[in-house]
Nucleic acid binder design. Structure first.
Lengths: 315, 315
DNA sequence: CAGATTATGCTCAAGGAGAGTATAAATGGC
DNA sequence: GCCATTTATACTCTCCTTGAGCATAATCTG
């Protein structure tokens, strides 16, 4: 892959950079992410000399590891940690993470690559059937215990307040965009396998762990995507060429982790001229057949800049 | 600064990372940024072995170069470019940029550090007195010429459409959040000194240039801040402890580059319980003296998570 | 045909945003 | 002291958006 001769870089400031992808698709109304290493890591690899740009490098790694091409991509965040590796003499290692959106394509996964529901990693994030049971039964009590474990009463109060706001308990409303804050709070409270490894502690909360800080990166991607679908027409990247409005709605709901008022959803989609009828109707459906739609190519150019709106109701 | 022994890293994948800060303050109703090298560069320096984290490194560099402490900080974007350096054998160099918000403090600048108005670099971004003259007189015609210079009619149309949308001409509305897209469009059209250096061309648009891609980074910071003030109470970081509502409004306007309806602004600020009266009145003012306000500390915790609203009207 | 299920059209009330009017409280010049 | 000027502050009004519900249409299953 590298045609250049090997170079020796003599520098205090030399570091290595990893490229990490949160590659999202929605299939059968479930938000799914591409994983490797038996669903315990995100597609990733070092930024190398031969890569022309960060995105090029990322695309190369994802395609090599998963056989799946990368479509729409946007940068998420850059993390740095020497602490994790344990060795204080180790050079800095930074991770540059990206969010990618695609459609699942049959039989293109690499040996070790597979799609997994993102709710496997964050079971408390799915509120489509109402607040999940683990929230009240497991998470809230553990967070309360964590808050109480603080020395000073003031800190106890601050902790619980923060927990209540981010998790939407104790009179506060659930806010699906706070996925990252929730993960970080659980991490801080040592209720996450990844932080227990580091800090010690026991009794983690349900949810599949990942290697390194990949789960944090995934949380970052979820939060970003949940915020973004509301004002940028990015759902498009996840849909097939033709779809019904209900399918579109289900995709949005899958990502947001909450339900949407059907009639209002249609109203908003239609009044924004985002879609046009194909003329055909959906086949093989229960109930009244629905019209098929496609996204209007023309609008995409302007909307990519200007924006869109999506309703996310509370029922 | 580095206590560790020098290490030799032998690796294809070794790279160097720069930390770059867009440090913003608002003084006398003007948005200002901290610069070095005679206002031609942003505070920046390499991420080094001795830095415990990215933010630590950034703080170290900014304080060393400018003597000014760094308050609120958030990450902006990570760029990579070998192309710029010219040497194809050079290792990758990435820039990790941050947005910082502070208050100007007297006489703390380093030798080569100074505050400059950000509109010196982007004169077309200030719409507080209506659309600036250079937009219609210089920029629009040049962009039109660029659009016309395309081979295919379809491309001509696409180019002009894009220009019209991002610059709010030809019937489109001005959108202050598109600062980065505007810079990138001008760059692509070779109307920016930095791109002329690279691509050749002549007849750039007014506006001070910067070293490397610092002006792009600044545009990124402006766009991010303009988007953020609307839903997160970040203006707080830029205000003195006590202020009048008009001063607060002027700060928002300085950042947004557009005016706000006064009465509606007050209504929104007050109904959100963001501020409280100090009891004192502003002294040394023309006209009826205004009440002094301060931000409510308590709210900050929740709002930092939940959000705020600001009105940005079109008049 | 009844019941279930989804699609689609329409209405309504509450709240928010944009914009304007009116009045109050200072200053400086004469 | 009066007036023009400037800023502060209180209300009002209208339009649009949003959340929510009702009603009807078009299918399939048994």
């Amino acid at each position: 892959m590298n045609k250049r001769p090997q170079k020796t870089v003599t520098a205090l400031d030399a570091i290595t950079a990893d490229l990490v992808a949160v590659l999202v698709a929605v299939t059968d109304g479930q938000p799914r992410i591409m994983t490797i290493e038996h669903a315990a890591a995100l597609p990733s690899g070092p930024f190398q000399f031969g890569h022309r740009s960060l995105q090029t490098g990322l695309r190369a790694w994802v395609e090599a590891q998963t056989g799946h091409p990368l479509g729409y991509v946007e940068q998420l965040y850059t993390f740095a940690d020497r602490g994790r590796s344990g060795d204080p003499d180790a050079p800095h290692r930074i991770s540059i993470s990206y969010l990618g959106l695609t459609r699942e394509e049959e039989g293109r996964e690499g040996a070790d690559a597979q799609w997994s529901s993102w709710y496997d990693y964050f079971p408390w994030e799915d509120h489509r059937d109402g607040p999940p049971a683990i929230l009240a039964k497991i998470i809230a009590p553990k967070l309360k215990a964590w808050a109480r474990s603080a020395e000073q009463p003031a800190l106890q109060k601050t902790r619980w307040r923060r927990a209540a706001i981010t998790f939407g308990v104790d009179g506060h409303e659930w806010n699906e965009e706070l996925a990252l804050q929730r993960y970080e709070l659980l991490y801080e409270a040592a209720l996450i396998a990844e932080s227990v490894r580091e800090k010690g502690g026991e009794g983690v909360v349900p949810g599949r762990a990942m290697r390194g800080d990949h789960r944090r990166i995934l949380a970052t991607g979820i939060a970003r995507l949940r915020a973004k679908i509301k004002y940028r027409p990015v759902v498009f990247e996840l849909m097939p060429d033709e779809f019904t409005l209900l399918q579109l709605q289900r995709s949005v709901e899958a990502l947001a982790g909450r339900l949407v008022h059907k009639q209002n959803f249609r109203r908003l989609i239609e009044q924004q001229d985002l879609v046009e009828e194909t003329g055909a109707m959906a086949a093989d459906t229960i109930g009244r057949p629905a019209k098929l739609f496609r996204f209007r190519q023309g609008v995409l150019a302007e909307r990519a800049v200007v924006g869109t709106k999506l309703p996310l109701s509370r029922t």
